[in-house]
Amino acid sequence: MNDTQYAKYCRDQLSEFASTLQKRTEDLTDGDSLKELAASFSALANGERDLYGDGPTLISRLFTTYPDFGPTLPRDLLWFLGGECLHYMPDDEIATYQQLDELRHEAASQGKVLDLHQARSSIGKVQ
Rank of each mutant, 00 (worst) to 15 (best):
C10Y: 04
L37T: 03
H117F: 15
S15T: 11
T29F: 12
L103R: 06
S122T: 01
Y97W: 13
Y6R: 14
I59E: 03
D91T: 12
H117M: 12
A39R: 10
A43Y: 08
E93Q: 07
D30V: 09
L73T: 00
R24D: 15
L44K: 02
T57F: 09
D50I: 08
S15L: 09
G124S: 08
Y6E: 08
R104G: 01
A95T: 11
L21C: 09
T4I: 13
L34C: 01
L44S: 04
K8Y: 08
T65K: 09
A108P: 02
H105P: 00
T64N: 14
L116T: 02
R104V: 04
Y52F: 15
D91E: 15
G70A: 15
H117V: 14
Q13M: 10
E93C: 07
Y97T: 05
R120C: 11
K112M: 14
L14G: 05
H87T: 07
C85K: 04
A107P: 08
G55M: 06
P74C: 05
R61W: 09
T57Q: 15
L81M: 14
L51D: 02
E36V: 00
D50K: 13
G55D: 07
C85I: 03
T4Q: 15
P67W: 08
L58V: 04
L78N: 01
L81A: 06
G83Q: 13
L14I: 05
T72L: 15
A107R: 07
G55L: 05
S33V: 00
T20Y: 09
L77S: 01
A119K: 07
L51I: 13
R24I: 09
Q22F: 12
D54V: 13
D91S: 12
R24W: 12
L103C: 01
E93M: 14
P56H: 11
D12T: 11
K35V: 00
F80H: 11
S42I: 06
L116N: 08
L34F: 00
L103A: 04
S19G: 15
R11A: 11
H87S: 10
L100E: 01
S40D: 12
K35H: 01
T96W: 04
S60E: 14
L21E: 11
R11D: 05
K35R: 13
Q22R: 15
F17N: 03
C85M: 04
C10M: 07
L58T: 01
A107F: 10
A18E: 09
F63W: 03
L116P: 00
S15W: 04
